[in-house]
Design a protein around this nucleic acid. Sequence first.
DNA 1: GCTTGCCTTGACGTCCGCGTGAAGCTTTAG
DNA 2: CTAAAGCTTCACGCGGACGTCAAGGCAAGC
Lengths: 131, 131
Amino acid sequence: MRIGELAERVGTSTRALRHYESLGLLAARRTSNGYREYDEDDVRVVREIRTLVGIGFALEETRPFVECLRAGYETGDSCPASVAVYRRKIAEIDDCVASLAAVRERLSSAVSGGSLDGGVPEPLCAFTPLR
Amino acid sequence: MRIGELAERVGTSTRALRHYESLGLLAARRTSNGYREYDEDDVRVVREIRTLVGIGFALEETRPFVECLRAGYETGDSCPASVAVYRRKIAEIDDCVASLAAVRERLSSAVSGGSLDGGVPEPLCAFTPLR
DNA sequence: GCTTGCCTTGACGTCCGCGTGAAGCTTTAG
DNA sequence: CTAAAGCTTCACGCGGACGTCAAGGCAAGC
């Protein structure tokens, strides 16, 4: 299939797919006229990327999962490198939740009359799951 | 005092101070040679900004606090508009923690053998306290 | 006079994940 | 045959909070 069909099937844009390719996350065969040509394996790769990004992973962080799929494994998280990323992410979430809890504390005490002194400018959240 | 001294006293850069000025968060008198001249009130304003930013506020969100100080109140959160921002932030944190907990769930179940299906691509965290 | 250091105003660079044209192919439908 | 759709690469835009030159003015010590 070509890029437009792939984009539609996984629910993203052709621009995003070309972006993934530019990062080396997605590789495409080319037809004689220069069009990109994809197969079902590519669908799985892109689905993996989209799922992880939807969760809050940076594109670079999806690389181990993509390589795992490319290596022929059933799922992107069949490889130790992927599991390691999972664990790192979980740790980041824990740190993030902890610092958010601390900030929440400071804010709610400030609301009830406390003073918001210029406390610790900690690293805060490294986990950034925006939309 | 001039911009360099102010920057040093509050622990930031002259570039940041000029940036705050460009956003209208900080106002400076000028000496005859064009140098910016600050007083103790400005120190308080910048400290307020830095504290809030350190907590994870966007610069725009510090505006009510700055205006509150400018209006002559003791602290930046003496005004209802500031307290409203506090409450909004607390709500954002709660939402953020909730979605992080959900993501954590999915990840830890994936680590222990589950499948990371492409679930809901929710808004996730709107609160982004990076460093 | 000269150097050093602080100040001034631009204005571009950074990081990320694409969005959004622009200009020009190819392929397909009518 | 032509128009529309889909494809190609190139390249700037965005949002946030500044960093980092660049090119020059001002004040003070030797």
